[in-house]
Write a protein that binds this DNA or RNA. Structure first.
Lengths: 125, 125
DNA sequence: CGCCTGTCTAGACGTCCGTCGAATCAGAGA
DNA sequence: TCTCTGATTCGACGGACGTCTAGACAGGCG
């Protein structure tokens, strides 16, 4: 947690500025792709996709690792590893409160990813 | 092209039925995650994300491999491999017309992915 | 028919990823 | 302080991934 993903030239994923128009509207520049792809990659694993959903849909907006881990047939370290991946992708935030660690979703980046995938509501044409 | 991704228990990604409520609204079931994660995974590479964008934003809704390939510092086979990955993820369709092969985006699955990532418009609270 | 261009397949190679067990760190409580 | 529980880090292993070169296939043209 102390060291953020310092190697990534993170745009302003945390900002609310919709940095990117829909993927189908204008060609995504290489730099943008380099920044956004890791986020999609992080969601590209079934376990992490479920973790992301469990965290984002949790009551109070946060989920305890102690609730996340028993939901899978995986060891604690493995779940911890996946959570780290989500963290480094900027998709979630972690906070320790006493004995337990709570994870919380970052809505801004989710919105950006959703915006990027947005297509015309229907095949109007 | 003759053989589709027959191994995947593809839900009805091609259907217009929004099979999945937003990730942040209800916990994504394991089966859904297993089906949708590969699509995110396919978008989890900068090259493929750009390819997807170039195809989806192309005029006429389709792009020729001959236009795609020279946009990268990669060999033809490598681009072909990435296109195959997008194809097998159900994100694009390919069609050969004479000498050239044209790729076309599948809007339905893009809409589903976008819907899954949808979050409340703003942190109203 | 023979050749040329465009695209895909096959095989190989180095790297990254998902998983585990063992060890370590962080707090809480007796 | 000592111990116990929860979470992360470390090291290792097998498999998947991204890239390449070489070769094969498809279609157009002289």
């Amino acid at each position: 947690m102390s060291k953020q993903a310092a190697s990534l030239p993170v745009i302003d994923l945390t900002a609310d500025t919709p940095c990117c128009p829909p993927l189908a509207q204008r060609r995504v520049p290489a730099e943008t792709a380099a920044v956004l792809a890791p986020a999609f990659k992080a969601l590209g694993d079934p376990v992490r996709l479920q973790l992301m959903s469990m965290i984002a849909s949790a009551e109070g907006g946060e989920a305890c690792v102690c609730d996340l881990t028993p939901a899978f047939d995986l060891t604690g370290p493995t779940i911890s590893h996946h959570l780290k991946t989500l963290r480094e992708a900027g998709l979630v935030d972690a906070e320790r409160r006493g004995t337990w660690v709570y994870y919380r979703a970052r809505p801004a980046i989710l919105r950006q990813l959703a915006a990027l995938l947005t297509v015309e509501p229907a095949t109007a044409a």
